[in-house]
Amino acid sequence: MTPDRLAPYARLPRAYHDLRLLHSTVDAFGRAHWLLRTPEETPGPYDAMVVTVDDGASYETALSSVTARHPKVDSLPDGGFVVADARSRAGDEQVQVFDALGRPSWTFRVGDAIEHLLTDESGDLWIGYFDEGVFGDDPLSAAGARRWSATGEALWEYRPPPGGDWIADCYALNVDRRVAWVYPYTSFPLVEVRDSRPPRLRTTPVRGASGVAVDGERVAFLGGYRRDRDRVVLASLGEATVDVLSTSRVACADGTPLDRPRQVVSRGPRLYVRDRSSTEWDVLDIGGG
């Protein structure tokens, strides 16, 4: 059974609440990060700060000369960070890699219309694109989901497995230790991606979810269209299908309804959920431990 509320996970310390929140995420190691800058708008590159909360303790990393206007952030295993601009034009090197001291070290391009940016434990970047990138004029985002190295080398791109369609919009992307899961519009299959195997497609009856968690043979889908934003569908992995076991509803950790569009980060058996203007992360964990 699923709980009727998410569990509180991490919050930005109050000392940083006067800064402007640009983006937030939870990384492959379970650390929460907030990308912040001063409220004043300045033209051109700007200085920013990443505040990290790890098991209740917090620390900050100053980033210099950030260029992204619509930034998405994640961490790298060497202590650095990657910041990508979700929207870009041909020729823009919209990904910046920062070292552990916050200094820019690499720039490269990954395509327009980034919906999901998730780094894995090795530091590779997994990116899911929304429809304006898939159907735009940028060939780098046309595949709908791709994997890149932290220096900009293209490592993998989605190609429909047997019985599958091309991605029109990457609704959910789960990046775990050795596997990624892609949940794309329009037919909403669940596609398993492992390094040494061809992608494996399983059909699902679940439409419009914004997050997917996987623990062994167990799966949870969070969200859906309109009145189903608070829906949790528990299912099991079959050979070629995802079979629904139960459907329930869930609220935020403080009891408020989960009825607004929210950011969801899918990491293995966990779904991290944040109101897009909030400084707090909640979690739904289907792990067996």
Rank of each mutant, 00 (worst) to 15 (best):
V206E: 12
W148G: 04
A150N: 13
G216K: 05
D215W: 03
A172N: 08
A168D: 14
A142K: 05
P161I: 12
R197Q: 14
R197W: 10
F188W: 15
P162K: 02
A150C: 13
P184A: 06
R178A: 14
G208N: 01
R202Q: 00
D176P: 05
A142E: 08
W148L: 14
G163A: 00
N174H: 04
D215S: 13
V179P: 05
R194M: 12
D215L: 01
T186W: 13
Y158R: 02
P199E: 08
A145F: 04
Y158S: 01
G163T: 01
V206K: 02
A172V: 07
C170A: 14
L190E: 02
R147F: 06
D176V: 01
V214F: 07
G144L: 06
A213E: 07
G208C: 03
D165T: 11
D215H: 05
V212Q: 02
R146I: 08
L140G: 00
A150S: 15
A168R: 12
L173W: 07
L173I: 08
R200L: 14
V179Q: 15
A180Q: 12
V212K: 01
W156R: 09
L155W: 04
P162E: 15
R177G: 05
P139M: 13
R147K: 15
A168Q: 12
S196W: 09
P139K: 12
R159K: 09
G164F: 00
N174I: 07
S141E: 00
R177D: 13
G152P: 09
S149F: 14
L173F: 11
P139F: 10
V219M: 02
P162W: 03
D169G: 02
L173H: 08
L190D: 03
R159A: 14
A143P: 04
S196R: 15
G211S: 10
G164T: 00
D215I: 00
I167H: 06
V206D: 03
V214P: 01
L140H: 01
A180E: 14
R159M: 10
S187R: 09
R194H: 05
P161R: 10
W148C: 13
G211Y: 10
P162S: 13
E153S: 12
G211H: 10
G164P: 00
R194P: 07
Y185W: 10
D169M: 05
L190I: 01
R147V: 10
T151S: 15
P199T: 03
G164A: 11
W181Y: 14
T151L: 09
A213T: 06
Y171E: 09
G144M: 06
T204K: 01
A168I: 09
W181V: 06
S141V: 01
